[in-house]
């Protein structure tokens, strides 16, 4: 089993983490926990360090100081072999898709299955196809190359690849940005379904306030290098802090809550 982590409720623990790029302070001693089975949304203005936080949680970048534990392992100082094992349990959707341009969409989704399982090629292709369907792509899309896709299709294909190995922890960087409302809704439904039926833990970076209300169990608001607020979305919007008010109480934020 998961070496004692299965009982552990905390899937991601960020402690006193600081990130700097040169002189620029992006995170100032932030603390953050993600519990098993929840959907945590990270929100915040552009450039507030959401993608950077995500990169640190998936071990692509080392924080300047502080610790990050992912699925019970210390993600800041992991040797190569355990890091590989840990990464197989994690799925990541990058902000710009990051599909392999030399492979078709189907091959992109099948790639992790080919590398890490011993299933037959026919079954792998079918599973990849099923993942494409789950994210709402038509079968014909599978034969296309990423450069032939629209922005939203690319995002859905990238999500299919992120869930190819049924990871227990999924990181999504702006899954609904650039999607039409219908597809964005379908994606929200997919995220909820993955959580409900697989018990996935999902960390989701989003600017989409509708989606925030619909899917997030909890949210953290990044700003001024700190975590300005954490809690359920309903709790956060009650806050009197002017920075939080300006984020949620604009016309868009109000519309998402059904206040006009």
């Amino acid at each position: 089993m998961l070496a004692g982590t299965s009982n552990n409720k905390l899937v991601v623990e960020v402690k006193e983490m600081t990130t700097r790029f040169g002189d620029k302070l992006v995170h100032d001693r932030i603390n953050l926990n993600v519990c098993r089975g929840e959907i945590l949304a990270i929100v915040g203005g552009s450039g507030s360090g959401k993608s950077t936080l995500l990169r640190e949680m998936v071990m692509l970048q080392k924080p300047t100081s502080g610790s990050v534990r992912v699925l019970g392992e210390d993600a800041t100082g992991l040797a190569d072999a355990p890091a590989l094992a840990l990464r197989r349990r994690i799925g990541v959707l990058f902000q710009y898709g990051a599909l392999f341009g030399g492979l078709t969409v189907l091959q992109n989704v099948a790639a992790p299955l080919r590398e890490h399982t011993q299933l037959s090629h026919a079954l792998i292709d079918e599973i990849a196809m099923m993942k494409l369907r789950l994210t709402g792509l038509s079968p014909d899309t599978g034969a296309l190359f990423p450069s032939q896709l629209s922005g939203g299709m690319r995002k859905r294909a990238a999500l299919s690849r992120a869930i190819a190995l049924d990871p227990e922890l999924l990181f999504l960087d702006e899954p609904t940005s650039g999607l039409d409302p219908v597809t964005a809704d379908a994606l929200d439904e997919l995220v909820l379904q993955l959580k409900a039926s697989l018990g996935l833990t999902i960390v989701i970076v989003t600017h989409d306030i509708d989606s925030l209300w619909r899917v997030a169990d909890r949210a953290v608001l990044l700003g001024d290098s700190c975590i300005l607020a954490a809690g359920t979305v309903a709790e956060i919007v009650q806050s009197k802090d002017s920075r939080i008010i300006s984020f949620f109480q604009g016309p868009r934020g109000r519309a998402a809550r059904g206040i006009v």
């Binding site: 189907l106 292709d125 079918e126 196809m129 099923m130 369907r133 899309t141 379904q193 039926s197």
Partner: peptide, 23 residues
Amino acid sequence: PKAQTLYEYVSRRGGVPGQLPKA
């Protein structure tokens, strides 16, 4: 019950088996 929902979700949304885009 949980597995049942997952199974129904996959069979409802996952499409027909054996259907692959033809190269």
